[in-house]
């Protein structure tokens, strides 16, 4: 028996919007720790890792570890039928081939049940070792989204270079080039607007903007984004979900032939 009741149903809607363009089908894993997912895109270039901790749910019952295969587009369609302020409950019986999404409006005078078929998915789970990254940048999530969107109108890839002074995003295309530098900030009154850089070593890596633009669909989930890079590792882009967990995206770099 599985029963997860989330007071902020809008949060689950945002989570699905943040994953559905990257991954079609994925297994959600439910354990006493929480509700999680790890899935790669079809070309094995990017990976999304989601954790919603059990403590963040108003009610969390998961009698045994279960893995439930779902089509993320279909799940997003069903969740779009929930109001942003609705309470959402996920329910599944042991051995059942479907999951029920129950939506309750805030005044609790409208209750809707949506039942979705589960799928069998052969998932390729990757072991991601904990790593110390050479450069970590924390910046406003909306600013990062804006930069990725703007640069993708000029070029297909972005060179991200981190130094002690700041982080530079550069691209080039048929019409010309673009460089955007975000300097490290020192304000203390508005931490959500700060650009914070923790650097062991300067790093410069190139990434496909198409994927970064897909990751920025998670922007509504967090005010800040953390970008971790090392010269010999995929980058990690993390959006922390307050009180619940995180959504992390891993992206393999492009390298010179």
């Amino acid at each position: 028996m599985l029963e997860l009741r989330l007071l902020q149903g809008g949060l689950l809607k945002k989570v699905l919007e943040a994953m559905k363009d990257l991954v079609n089908d994925a297994n959600f894993d439910c354990s006493p720790t929480g509700f999680s997912l790890q899935a790669m895109d079809s070309s094995h270039v990017a990976l999304v890792s989601l954790l919603l901790r059990s403590e963040g749910f108003e009610h969390y019952r998961c009698d045994r570890n279960v893995s439930m295969g779902m089509n993320l587009n279909n799940m997003a369609k069903m969740l779009r039928c929930a109001g942003n302020d609705d309470i959402v409950t996920l329910k599944a019986d042991d051995g059942s081939d479907c999951i029920t999404f129950m939506f309750e409006n805030p005044s609790q005078d409208k209750i809707a049940d949506f039942e979705m078929k589960l799928m069998d998915i052969d998932s390729e789970h990757l072991g991601i070792p904990d790593a110390e990254y050479q450069s970590i940048v924390r910046m406003p999530a909306a600013e990062f989204a804006r930069i990725c969107r703007d640069l993708s109108t000029i070029g297909d890839t972005v060179l991200i270079s981190v130094s002690k002074e700041g982080v530079q995003f550069s691209t080039r295309g048929d019409m010309g080039t673009a460089n955007i530098v975000c300097r490290r900030t020192t304000t203390v009154d508005k931490p959500e607007e700060d650009v914070i850089i923790e650097m062991e070593e300067p790093v410069s890596l190139t990434f496909a903007l198409r994927y970064l633009n897909s990751f920025t669909k998670a922007t509504p989930l967090a005010t800040q984004v953390t970008i971790s890079m090392s010269s010999d590792l995929p980058m990690v882009i993390e959006y922390r979900i307050e009180g619940m967990g995180y959504i992390r995206y891993y992206l393999a770099p492009k390298i010179d032939e």
């Binding site: 990757l126 072991g127 190139t206 995929p234 393999a252």
Partner: peptide, 14 residues
Amino acid sequence: MQRQKSLLSFFQKS
């Protein structure tokens, strides 16, 4: 020319 690396060249399947 730049080549897109795969995640599988960094992380092991578990």
